[in-house]
């Protein structure tokens, strides 16, 4: 069983746990097992197509899996897998012309996305 370390942001969706043990021989299998165990985590880890979201980093031990095989990276039976949030953001071009929200809520589908 691999140990999975869950970041603070996702613990609320995993019964408050910081660490769980799940099966899996690869990073992808371990993450999938976590999502199966705690379905509410799924939408924060995977996108609508079922792909790992770009801002979810997975480390096996101290290594980012992007450096050694991606989701196919092997996980030893007693390995440690850590989900690490990639933090990103920034003002969008569309916001320059957007009116200020008056209800304290920013809707998700403002026009004119800029990437």
């Amino acid at each position: 069983m691999a140990k999975v370390f869950i970041p603070t942001a996702l613990r609320a969706f995993a019964d408050g746990k910081a660490q769980v043990e799940v099966g899996g021989a690869t990073a992808g299998e371990v993450v999938a097992a976590l999502a199966e165990l705690y379905p509410d985590i799924r939408r924060h880890i995977y996108d609508a197509e079922g792909k790992l979201r770009s801002y979810v980093n997975v480390f096996v031990g101290e290594e980012d899996i992007r450096n050694f095989g991606g989701l196919g990276a092997p996980v030893p039976p007693d390995g440690e897998v850590t989900l690490v949030p990639a933090i990103a953001g920034g003002v969008a071009g569309a916001l320059r012309a957007a009116p200020r929200q008056t209800d304290g809520i920013v809707r998700s589908k403002a026009a004119g996305r800029k990437r």
Partner: peptide
């Protein structure tokens, strides 16, 4: 105010 880009990359709880 957060942008769409902020929203797309946001994590819960924080």
């Amino acid at each position: 105010a957060p942008s769409d880009y902020d929203l797309d990359h946001a994590w819960p709880v924080y």
